[in-house]
Design a protein around this nucleic acid. Structure first.
Lengths: 154, 154
DNA sequence: CAACATAGTTTCATTATGCAACCACTGGAG
DNA sequence: CTCCAGTGGTTGCATAATGAAACTATGTTG
């Protein structure tokens, strides 16, 4: 097979997430959805992408349980695309990508927006990794362990 | 031109990060690099990807300042690929992707490894978004503001 | 120097992307 | 009901990216 390789059966959770999110458009569609965009035409005009690609991506995101189609909302008979909890769960990923750009982009002056705390209008703090007990962890403070076998329960 | 669209000039920091990281392999290469993989052949055998694609991706990552080539390390005359600070800065992105899979994957039993605090052997806490003053923020507690114009300084 | 390993590049078939054109359905005006 | 613009797609075709395998060029070992 010369198909584009799929990570569907991969045991690495990063590869598995890329299976659903790892193409050029999916995360941008989710970004728009988090902003409240719901309609096909809105996605299309805001992202400036071809309609067939958008159509394929929306279908893929629905298949992966990230979006769901709702029958209506503004009274019209059209449908719209809403984030599921799984879809809203990508928020930290988007924040991490955003903060990485803010920190390391070669031309940060071209970045138009900053993510701020709505209450104070101040930038949000950088994401940090902490242990269960709250200690701040660096990458070197972490390691991978095999997942414990599921305990047989029923 | 029917080229794949580039996000290079886009003002959205998420799009800008996807320009460098948003393909199927780049983040997996970085994942391996964070594990200490440095050599072409090691990447190739561990990821099982075609050598031409690996070659192109490594070049792209070097061009984006995420990897750099170092002349040697084990004495041999070959070169190796090392993460730059910018490359190591992607760690939160990978953690976010991993945690998203752990939380929402449809077949979590297929996930082989968990990320743990090395000192205690316990899973790391989920990434959380906080305000400057430490308040925990939900997506709804945040908003985007236009980046303040650079203050003319010299 | 012969033989083998490493690190790629080249070639070619297959797939995905992107644009434009086309089609189906909706909702409103007449 | 008919016409018609707007919405939400699908289809066709050209081009670009991907992937497997073969090939090349060094480096390394015996």
């Amino acid at each position: 097979m010369v198909k584009r390789t799929s990570f569907e059966g991969d045991s690495c959770p990063i590869a598995r997430s890329l299976e659903a999110l790892g193409d050029w458009w999916s995360l941008l569609i989710i970004r728009e959805a988090l902003f409240g965009i719901r309609r096909f035409g809105e996605f299309q005009s805001r992202l400036g992408m071809a309609k067939n690609i958008l159509s394929a991506r929306l279908r893929s995101l629905v298949d992966h349980g990230i979006l769901e189609t709702a029958p209506a909302s503004d009274g019209s008979a059209y449908q719209e695309y809403l984030l599921t909890p799984k879809g809203r769960g990508t928020f930290p990923i988007l924040v991490a990508l955003r903060q990485w750009s803010e920190a390391f982009d070669d031309h940060p002056e071209e970045i138009a927006t900053i993510l701020v705390d709505r209450a104070k209008g101040r930038p949000v703090k950088k994401l940090e990794m902490r242990a269960e007990d709250g200690r701040l962890l660096s990458p070197a403070d972490t390691t991978l362990k095999p997942r414990p076998a599921r305990r047989r329960s029923a």
